[in-house]
Amino acid sequence: MSTLLDQLARRQLLWQGDSQQLAYRAVASGYPELDQQLGGGLPATGLIDIQTEAGIGELRLLLPYLQQQQQQSQRLLVFIGPPAELCADMLAGSGLELSQLLIITPGEQPAFGQSSDELAKLTQPAKNPQSVKKLSPQQQALWAAEQCLQSGCCASVLLWPAVISLAQARRLQLAAEQGAASMIVFRHSSQALSLPVNLSISLKPDPQGLQLTVLKRKGSWPAAPFRISMQQKWPVLCLTGTAAEPLRQAV
């Protein structure tokens, strides 16, 4: 019987539940709880979908991972369409190389370095708009993301999109595989559309750090929600046991 099983297993006709083969190379995330739950860490390539509200610690969760990605391959880190200005102090403080960082803000039109006033004067009275395909900022962001991923000179691309469709996600996933890069998409949890990604997680705020739910994981199945403690890395950004009283109700 066991010879038969061996044969079947060798021909990959038999799949055993206890030996989970990771579909991707994992990079340690810097949080032991997360590494344990995800079988090694976050994927080094491909799409990572993060469903989260802004400002609850989603970037802090990723910083050690991004730092490793950047350092291992000496490649670029690209932020596309961040919700506000990025703070150099915080990023440099967590070990990111600022000169290997690229910020793309789609939709910022006037170009310095060109004869912009002349250009603006000429482009205003355009009566034939049908000849020019103007891309919306959203499309520009996706285009830039695809170019960065394909180029092979970016380690990770972070994208804050308004909305992303199934076909777009598929394209980005292919581009990421091609350029051996990872792409992290931050979405609001309200957009519950499931995407073809390597890893999809949802984050909830927690007094001690973050509450993490694995929604989807390639080559495996989701685990129960668990808590990631940030007490060690960011003690100031965790509530201690005796929660301080709300200081002030603003008018």
Binding site: L91, I104, Q109, A111, G113, Q114
Partner: peptide, 12 residues
């Protein structure tokens, strides 16, 4: 494609 202003780096 995006214009010079849309692509930038960050310095401290």
């Amino acid at each position: 494609r995006l214009g010079h202003a849309a692509v930038s780096g960050l310095t401290l």
